[in-house]
């Protein structure tokens, strides 16, 4: 008995998840050629219409916009901090102190605002999520954007988490100790989690090891936190933000900003 490929294909493609990501079919028709342009984030970022009411800033304070503003601020101050910070266990703490003690012009302002804005971004993104939840804006046709938003929330928390280790002080060190030990208890991925024996996870091949680059917090962990914090996570968050803003323009704002 040969498998019915059409049925299997339909199972994969005829559902909300697939249709949210691939919004038109592949046939070479005039309509599809038009849809390829209209549903492409690079080619058609603007919606055809935006109603006047939708761009009035009201009591919800444009919380997503605020989050984006804080993200841009973090990018700017973060790049400037990178000029004076070395992700090396012998240098990191001293570099952070130099910045804090104004050994570099504007150093204290840069470091402290970067830290406070990091906290602010977590707060604004949570309020943004609360607002979307309370106004029911996660419902169709915006459910795809809600999923993107949840991933962005996780990335924001991870940015905050990786940045925590970089001063290489007691606070960050033990926070990362606790956090990565939690990762070590992840089901199917951590050496202390459920099913660890079944999949052969030990302290030197599980997800915690992959995060730290070793079995304990040493130089590789600091370097990994630095690279994820400065390049990996911001790049992912930036890409998803583009998708997020583009999709809300296409689906339409649920109310005033």
């Amino acid at each position: 008995m040969l498998p019915n490929l059409k049925e299997i294909g339909d199972k994969i493609t005829q559902n909300d998840v697939w249709k949210s990501i691939f919004r038109h079919r592949y046939e070479d028709t005039s309509r599809n050629r038009m849809l390829q342009v209209l549903s492409n984030v690079w080619l058609h970022i603007h919606p055809t219409t935006v109603t006047k009411g939708n761009i009035n800033i009201s009591f919800t304070w444009c919380l997503g916009g605020l989050t984006f503003f804080v993200f841009l601020f973090e990018t700017l101050t973060g790049v400037l901090l990178m000029f004076y910070y070395t992700p090396d266990v012998n240098r990191a703490y001293a570099d952070m102190l130099d910045l804090s003690n104004n050994a570099i012009p504007l150093g204290r302002l840069l470091r402290n605002t970067h830290r406070w804005a990091g906290h602010a971004m977590v707060i604004t993104v949570c309020f943004h999520m609360l607002r979307v939840f309370l106004t029911g804006s996660y419902k169709a046709p915006r459910q795809f954007n809600w999923v993107v938003g949840v991933i962005l929330l996780v990335l924001t928390l991870l940015l905050s988490f990786t940045g925590y280790l970089l001063p290489w002080d007691q606070l960050g060190y033990w926070a990362i100790t606790v956090g990565t030990n939690m990762a070590g208890a992840t089901p199917f991925a951590g050496y202390q989690g459920p099913f660890a024996e079944l999949f052969g996870f030990t302290i030197d091949n599980d997800i915690r090891f992959g995060l730290l680059g070793g079995t304990s917090i040493q130089a590789p962990a600091l370097l990994r936190a630095y690279v994820w914090h400065c390049i990996g996570l911001p790049a992912m968050a930036g890409g998803l933000m583009m998708l997020h803003f583009w999709r809300i323009r296409k689906d339409g704002f649920s109310g005033q900003l």
Binding site: F201, N205, D206, F209, G210, G213, G214, T215
Partner: peptide, 13 residues
Amino acid sequence: GTTGFFFPKVLYE
């Protein structure tokens, strides 16, 4: 994967 890029084969611990 668990034998991939993020899992170094030599540790300096």
